[in-house]
């Protein structure tokens, strides 16, 4: 039995979550967008991939995004803790390159709780921390019908306060929110679709 998506997706405030998978960046953009406040994206300066603000614009307004470039992960975590604790930002996105230990993950949780800020770590597959509130795996899906589709499969693979679930979602640029869509091949009503 999977939980209701509306109770779980605007990620819980004051907690640090994790996202992995090929569409983790899109997940992060959506998570930052639904908080409707300033977002800080912390990444390490040697990373070759850059986020493209024009690609981000349909989801998250680039004017609301700050980016911090750090030299190593220790600096990234220090900046993240400071930003989470402060409360001036609505969402903090952290690019993680090595697994967090329990102490680091817990410190981020405490900082997020103190500031009431949502934190989201973008982790490589299988590098999750035990302290995370939820962990999501996001991957893009092929949509045979729509040309400009943003169809994705979001799967919650760790949940401290609930059960797991899988949803196919799509970002609607007009409504600026995510819609849950039925899995392909199952028409609503014919199969036991729970979402």
């Amino acid at each position: 039995m999977q939980p209701d998506f509306a109770t779980i997706f605007p990620l819980r405030h004051g907690r640090v979550h994790e996202a992995c998978g090929p569409a983790a960046a899109a997940f992060a953009a959506v998570a930052g967008s639904v908080t409707q406040g300033m977002t800080l994206w912390i990444s390490q300066s040697w990373a070759g991939e850059t986020v493209n603000p024009l690609g981000l614009a349909p989801v998250l307004d680039p004017a609301l995004l700050l980016s911090a470039r750090t030299d190593n992960q220790t600096d990234s975590l220090a900046v993240a803790e400071e930003a989470l604790r402060d409360g001036a930002l609505a969402c903090v996105l952290i690019d993680i390159t090595r697994p967090l230990n329990l102490r680091e993950g817990r410190r981020l949780q405490l900082a997020a709780k103190a500031g009431g800020t949502t934190g989201l770590c973008l982790i490589p597959e299988g590098m999750g921390s035990n302290a995370a509130e939820t962990r999501w795996r996001a991957r893009p899906l092929f949509d045979p019908d729509d040309n400009d589709s943003t169809l994705m499969q979001w799967e919650i693979i760790k949940n401290k306060s609930g059960t797991m679930g899988t949803w196919n979602v799509r970002w609607s640029q007009e409504a600026r929110r995510v819609y849950v869509v039925s899995p392909v091949g199952f028409r609503p009503g014919t199969e036991g679709t729970s979402c």
């Binding site: 960046a25 070759g48 493209n52 690609g55 981000l56 614009a57």
Partner: peptide, 10 residues
């Protein structure tokens, strides 16, 4: 943003 652009550039 006149045309769709990718989220990540490398």
């Amino acid at each position: 943003c006149l045309r769709p652009r990718p989220l990540r550039l490398f």
